[in-house]
């Protein structure tokens, strides 16, 4: 009998232990980032974020080119993908909520979410970059092909599934009687969608966009392959640049002196904090919406 109780206690301890371990892990992440980037944190301070020059040879480390590269590609990607994601969500939940077309589009979105980012990057490099280059030639600017605009397009394709699936979930939670009430008053489907469904699920859709933005900010491989890896400030949306994630991917194994490494880790820390914040806010909004 005594033996059995001990085993129960042991089992409980294992459960608690692993739960506790996760929290330790997250704190460990945070502390590691702070410790490893402390050299750059103390040396550059706030100037790290506003510095426009990234020159490892001279020891100048300013992350503004990468910050702006990340923000421009992510927001541009989100702006491109948002209307399309919303269309898919509406398509799946209001127009074709079952049947052949529903399954086709649903499977397509799921498959899109399953394609590894490296394959997106490879495809972008060989299929999309030549197209963009031709486009750039035709409007008479320097035909890099690679660059911020190309990355934003690939990112927008990559994040469609996130916004679409969350929006669909929120839209499906709009109570049927409210919709039916509107229909019974003679509203068309468009009016129901615009005046009932979208206001009702607005905050949830916003959260979906936020989570997609978090994905886009941290996306590494696809962007690394097609952004052109230039460490200067981007001058237009067609110019090559670098994002926070791609500069880490490119330079981390080559970085030799400790300031360089800690500067790169500080970029990692910034990325970690921003994406954590965005995710927590997004999840919080979704939780609030689901409670209704």
């Amino acid at each position: 009998m005594n033996f059995k109780i001990n085993r129960d206690k042991l089992f409980r301890a294992i459960l608690y232990g692993s739960a506790f371990f996760l929290i330790v892990l997250i704190f460990g992440f945070f502390i590691t980032f702070i410790l490893e980037s402390s050299e750059s944190l103390t040396k550059f301070g706030f100037g790290f974020i506003t510095g426009k020059q990234w020159d490892p040879v001279d020891g100048h480390f300013g992350a503004l080119p990468f910050l702006s590269g990340t923000l421009i590609t992510s927001f541009l990607g989100l702006i491109i993908s948002f209307p399309i994601s919303l269309m898919i969500a509406v398509f799946l939940s209001e127009y074709f909520y079952k049947g052949f077309f529903h399954n086709v589009i649903k499977t397509a979105v799921e498959l899109l979410a399953g394609i590894p980012s490296i394959v997106f990057g490879f495809w972008g490099l060989f299929a999309l970059v030549p197209l963009i280059r031709e486009f750039q030639l035709s409007i008479g600017i320097e035909p890099y092909g690679v660059g911020i605009f190309t990355s934003a397009i690939v990112l927008s394709i990559m994040i469609i599934p996130y916004t679409a699936s969350i929006s669909r979930e929120v839209i499906s939670m709009v109570p049927t009687d409210v919709k039916e009430a509107a229909y019974s008053l003679g509203a068309t489907k468009f009016e129901v969608i615009r005046k009932i469904i979208l206001p009702y699920s607005g905050s949830g859709i916003f959260a979906g966009a936020l989570l997609a933005l978090g994905r886009a900010l941290g996306e590494t491989m696809a962007v690394t392959m097609i952004i052109g890896n230039s460490n200067s400030m981007p001058t237009s949306i067609f110019s090559p640049g670098n994002t926070m994630a791609s500069v880490i991917a490119n330079e981390f194994t080559e970085a030799t002196d400790s300031t360089y490494v800690s500067a790169l880790i500080e970029i990692g820390l910034l990325l970690f904090l921003v994406t954590a914040l965005i995710n927590l806010v997004g999840k919080y909004i979704i939780k609030k919406t689901v409670q209704f």
Partner: peptide, 28 residues
């Protein structure tokens, strides 16, 4: 309380850029 923090931790981990995980494992 612990389960609330564990859930929050999982959410942070899920949204964490994979490159950041790479850095930490490199250090560790």
């Amino acid at each position: 309380k612990l389960s609330y923090w564990v859930r929050t931790g999982l959410e942070i981990l899920q949204g964490m850029p994979s490159i950041s995980i790479g850095i930490v494992v490199y250090v560790w």
